[in-house]
Simulated assay, not measured.
Amino acid sequence: MKVLIIYSSIHHGNTKKIARTMATSINADIIETKNLKINTLDEYDLIGFGSGIYNAKFHKNILNLIDKLPKLKNKKVFIFSTSGFGRTKYNVPIEKELRKHNLEIIGSFTCKGYDTFGLWKLFGGIAKGRPNNKDFQNAKDFAERLISS
């Protein structure tokens, strides 16, 4: 199975760390959203979309990419995110958008990540030290379950 992980990681590299962990554990290709050549997506059987969360939303780079997705047949996808709170509800809007493109969502992952966005900066941020080793192990386990199913 050929896997691609696409991510946007802007402030602290939290999402990039999780994306790398997943990619390494399942031998996936990995690329930052801004470097993706959209016509290469057909080469992959499974595609992951990941982002940090900004004002309860995925980064605009991922949102714009999903808007521009070409017709992809028989593609499975998964979603992952990092945020100060690590809430799974942040992944739901992206799931809905991907379903509009008739993509099969086979998993969703989230974990906490150090966050100094907006008002959190005034307090020194939240979720310091995250993602941590447990988060990395959970990301690895999640990715391995995706390709074994």
Rank of each mutant, 00 (worst) to 15 (best):
N102V: 11
I79D: 01
F80N: 02
L65W: 04
E97G: 08
S51N: 09
I53G: 07
N91V: 10
K71I: 15
L65E: 05
P93D: 02
T88R: 10
E104G: 09
G52P: 07
Y54V: 02
R87D: 15
T88S: 12
T82F: 05
G84A: 09
I79G: 00
S81C: 12
D67M: 04
L63H: 03
I105R: 08
G50L: 01
K68T: 13
V92K: 13
S83V: 04
N64I: 06
K75D: 01
K57E: 07
G84S: 09
N74T: 11
G84L: 06
K89D: 14
H59V: 05
G48R: 05
L63T: 04
K57Y: 08
D67R: 06
L69V: 06
G48F: 07
N64D: 14
Y54K: 08
G48Q: 06
K96P: 02
K96R: 14
D67V: 04
D67W: 06
F85A: 14
N74V: 08
I105C: 07
N61L: 11
E97Q: 15
G48M: 02
H101I: 13
S108R: 13
K76F: 00
S108K: 13
K68P: 10
F78E: 02
T88Q: 13
I106C: 05
K96F: 09
I79H: 03
F58C: 00
F109S: 07
T88Y: 05
V77C: 02
I62K: 00
N55W: 06
K73H: 12
I47M: 09
G50R: 04
K73M: 11
L69I: 06
F58G: 00
E97W: 13
S81W: 06
I106Y: 04
K76E: 15
K96N: 12
F78Y: 08
N64W: 00
G107D: 09
K100Q: 15
N102D: 15
G52T: 14
K60M: 03
V92E: 15
S108N: 14
Y90S: 00
F49S: 05
R87F: 15
Y90D: 05
K57C: 05
G86S: 10
